[in-house]
């Protein structure tokens, strides 16, 4: 009974969000690593306050597409992006856009937990300090606490904020990285296989967290696992050989996909 109503609420939320416009719009996005082309004219829109899952076999360009959304590809030698991507109404590849500011708005969580070799507190406070988000120590304390709470880590670490972030377990480290991203108050959070290095219990915790974060953030997540995509996302995009094959409601995607290749992939015929 309870389950039903929760699902119903979710549906309603989805509907409402669907009425609201797209958070990010990618148009004819192509990416080249040197001479090698990794993405072919991808058109993919990311809905606000929605979890969008990117799936597809290894090497199909999921991470590459994800990284175009906050221009992390800029840090790779010889990588070139064409096409147009907007965040709200701003073209993020416009030379006038400050990439630093963009990344503050579009945060990222990586495949392997990568806390800085600093204390837990300093890890979370890193972004706010850089962007001058806190006016006082008390402010900063509040941001750190709030972020850790949002990442569901506060109760586990509140007594040892000054201890090293690298001393946490893998799952805690990943949630710390999520807290670190959340602390900058981004609008979009990108996650590249955030659970691939975690055990099932830690994975479940992170998935639950993604679910909760959806209320405040727009989330794009790359995942290897069909089940995970089904569990956490509302929209799913399937990539294959650098092409976007299909983008659809997650429910539909996993029950009745439009494209044969999606069907094959989901049935485990390649990948």
């Amino acid at each position: 009974m309870n389950m039903m109503s929760e699902a119903a609420v979710e549906k309603a939320l989805d509907k409402k969000m669907n009425d609201i416009s797209y958070k990010m719009i990618g148009k004819d996005v192509s990416v080249y690593y040197g001479d090698k082309r990794a993405l072919y004219d991808v058109n993919l829109n990311v809905r606000e306050n929605t979890v969008t899952a990117l799936i597809g076999p290894s090497g199909c360009g999921k991470s590459t597409f994800l990284r175009t959304l906050n221009r992390m590809n800029d840090t790779i030698d010889g990588c070139r992006v064409t096409g147009r991507i907007t965040l709200d109404t701003d073209d993020i590849y416009d030379p006038a856009i400050d990439v630093v500011e963009l990344r503050a708005r579009v945060g990222m969580v990586f495949q392997k937990p990568n806390p800085f070799p600093k204390s837990i507190y300093e890890n979370v406070a890193y972004g706010p300090r850089i962007h001058g988000l806190a006016k006082s120590k008390a402010d900063l304390d509040a941001i750190v606490e709030r972020s850790l709470q949002k990442a569901g880590l506060w109760n586990e670490v509140k007594d040892r904020l000054q201890e090293g972030g690298t001393g946490l377990s893998g799952g805690q480290q990943q949630r710390l990285c999520i807290a670190r991203a959340v602390a900058v108050s981004p609008e979009v959070i990108l996650m590249d296989e955030p659970c691939s290095a975690l055990d099932p219990i830690a994975t479940a915790k992170v998935e639950e967290l993604i679910h909760e974060l959806r209320a405040n953030f727009t989330i794009v997540i790359v995942t290897h696992s069909m089940q995970q995509a089904a569990r956490v996302s509302q929209r799913t995009a399937m990539f294959h050989l650098g092409n976007l094959v299909e983008e659809n409601d997650t429910d539909k995607m996993f029950t009745n996909p439009d494209d044969q290749r999606t069907q094959d992939y989901i049935m485990g015929r390649f990948g």
Binding site: N70, M72, T75, V100, E101, L102, R103, A104, G107, M108, F110, K112, N114, P115, F116, P117, Y126, G127, I130, H131, C177, R180, A181, V184
Partner: peptide, 13 residues
Amino acid sequence: PRALRDGSLGLGA
């Protein structure tokens, strides 16, 4: 590790 670099750059540093 490159991951630390990416982590920091990804936060807008």
